Amino acid sequence: MLKVGELAAHAGLTVRTLHHYDSIGLLSPSARSDAGYRLYNRDDVARLQQIQALRAFGMALSDIGAYLDSPAASPLAIVERQLSSLDQQIAQARHMREQLLRLRSRLAAGKETDLSIWLTTLEQMTMYEKHFSKEELARLPLYQNPEAQAEWQELVRHAQSLMNRGVAPDTREARAFAERWLGCVERDSGGNPAFILRLTAMAGQDPEAQKEMRLTPALLAYMRTAIAELRFVIYARYLPAETIERMRRHEASHSDEWIELAMAIRACMGADPEARSSEALALTRRWFALFHDMVGDDPEVVAQFRRAGSTEPMLHLGTGIGDDVIGFLRRAMQNIQAQAAKA
């Protein structure tokens, strides 16, 4: 049995904190000495370990008590969650070590004596952390792979050279490069549509990211047009020429809107997976309004558009729109139709 002062010393807490835990019923001692001192046994210590672990995960004290006293509480699950968190921290530390080793190698070889490269590295890491949680960064290939980051620097230089040489976005050369660009997006996002959307938003909306990645607004516009032209060539196998021209006009004025809408839908999916809320229905109406502005209302054209999407994998690369989003929109549309039937 441990006295309160001994347990506080082992846990790195104050005696006052343990007294507070006792007063709110979060951690009460199993026994008291003849003199009235609090005494803690092995089970008490195990509970304190779980309390401290859950606090580190950001859980409020009131929620911790409710959780630990519920049937769902499991010491094993908490320990496994701690191990997972540590694994992510180790992966992040390994990533930092690789960054520093690369810096040391460059500095030792005299390739770069200006320590601004340190700031660039740290700013780049901060840039990612603004858009992704620590758990997500541990699963984001682009963040974990310095070679992929170096390849993106080369891709940006190549894109800039295409612009400088006056290569039009609708040429075969630009479209071939756009296909390579999309392949790298897919690879370095791990094929995760939510990651693709956030990487796209980071590149397009974060001035710090644009600075670090050397992505000027003009360069981004060039690549978006080249990617769109790549898709138009594919759609032209299925759709009439007038529909392709309509899609070009739509792309020129609504490309940013599609990205913002897809991100809003993903956020809504987390809070309302069954798509029953007024927000879900409003987002779905907005989605289909944009869709019909892009493609039109001819049933045959719409059917061919969907046939192209189900047949051509390239059309989905880099869009950030996965089967989960399509399923959500279908559920929302069913709910809209059900509401209309009741009315």
Rank of each mutant, 00 (worst) to 15 (best):
D297Y: 11
R246L: 12
R237G: 01
I265P: 02
R307I: 12
M247Q: 05
L281D: 00
M247T: 05
P273V: 10
A282H: 09
V295C: 11
R306I: 03
M314T: 10
D293M: 01
A308H: 08
R286Y: 03
D272S: 03
G270Q: 15
L315P: 10
Y238F: 13
L220W: 04
A275Y: 15
P217Y: 01
E300C: 10
A282T: 06
F291S: 05
Y222M: 05
A236C: 06
L317M: 07
R276Y: 01
L315Y: 04
V295Q: 07
Y222C: 02
D256A: 15
S253M: 15
C268P: 07
L315D: 09
A275W: 15
T311E: 14
A282V: 05
F232H: 06
L290H: 11
S255K: 09
F232W: 05
A226C: 06
F232T: 02
W287Y: 14
L261F: 02
M223S: 02
L215P: 01
E251S: 15
V302P: 03
R214D: 14
P313D: 08
M223I: 15
S278V: 09
R237F: 00
E242G: 04
I234F: 11
I265N: 03
L317Y: 14
R224W: 11
A262L: 13
M263C: 04
A262G: 00
S253W: 12
C268Y: 05
L230Y: 02
M269R: 12
R214W: 03
S253C: 13
I321C: 00
I259M: 13
M294R: 09
M223R: 03
T243Y: 03
M223C: 07
G270L: 13
A267H: 07
F291K: 02
E279K: 08
L239W: 05
E257H: 15
V295K: 07
R249Y: 07
Y238S: 05
M223A: 04
W258C: 01
T319Q: 06
T284D: 02
A241W: 01
